[in-house]
């Protein structure tokens, strides 16, 4: 199963009309398959209920559980297995976003189990293309960086700038 297109960055970023140029993104999380938070950036987060470590753990736990919930609830497949049975990335039914009254969370898991989470304004549209683009940035700036050790937090200025820049184009 091919998840996404080639690894090179698509020459033009997915065109998101930058009307109302405000920053609609609240924060981004990147987790690896073991639940280590590789990257956390926030642009607009007035409310912190927990300390950062606890917050990351809770987020990973929420995604993990929502994924098993989606796999179990899948109304189109006959054999769904038991609730909570670990599944490989790309296996079973997963989810790509959820919305509450105050935010929208978009989620993407790559074949290698890296999870990209973008929290934005609840009125933003489908952000699957945006997440794919951020994944491309990750491949270009992080995975191909010889100084980066897999499984460690990302410290790469270029990647951060590129993500910031791209996220600013998200419109509601």
């Amino acid at each position: 199963m091919q998840f996404f297109g080639g690894s090179e960055i698509s020459p033009s970023a997915p065109t998101l009309t930058a009307t109302g140029a405000g920053n609609n993104a609240h924060m981004i999380y990147i987790f690896n398959r073991n639940g280590v938070c590789l990257l956390y950036r926030e642009w607009n987060r007035p409310l912190h209920t927990l300390n950062p470590q606890q917050d990351h753990k809770l987020m990973f736990g929420l995604l993990f559980s929502l994924k098993s919930l989606a796999a179990k609830m899948d109304p189109t497949s006959v054999d769904k297995g038991n609730l909570g049975v670990p599944q490989l990335p790309g296996q079973g039914c997963s989810f790509h976003s959820f919305r509450t009254n105050t935010y929208k969370l978009s989620f993407m898991e790559t074949p290698s189990g890296i999870k990209f989470i973008l929290v934005t304004n609840p009125r933003t549209g489908d952000l699957r293309e945006t997440l794919k683009y951020i994944y491309n940035l990750y491949v270009e700036y992080v995975a191909k960086n010889p100084l980066y050790t897999p499984g460690t937090p990302i410290r790469c200025e270029l990647f951060n700038t590129a993500v910031d820049q791209h996220v600013r184009t998200i419109s509601s």
Binding site: L66, L69, P75, T76, S77, F95, R99, T100, T102, Y103
Partner: peptide
Amino acid sequence: LWHSMHAISQQLSPTTGCTGIELLEADTF
């Protein structure tokens, strides 16, 4: 499980006044 996820989603809100998940978009439902 949904009840708990609903409650946790309120904790992770970036702004105040979150009342939990209203819409979950999965691949097939």
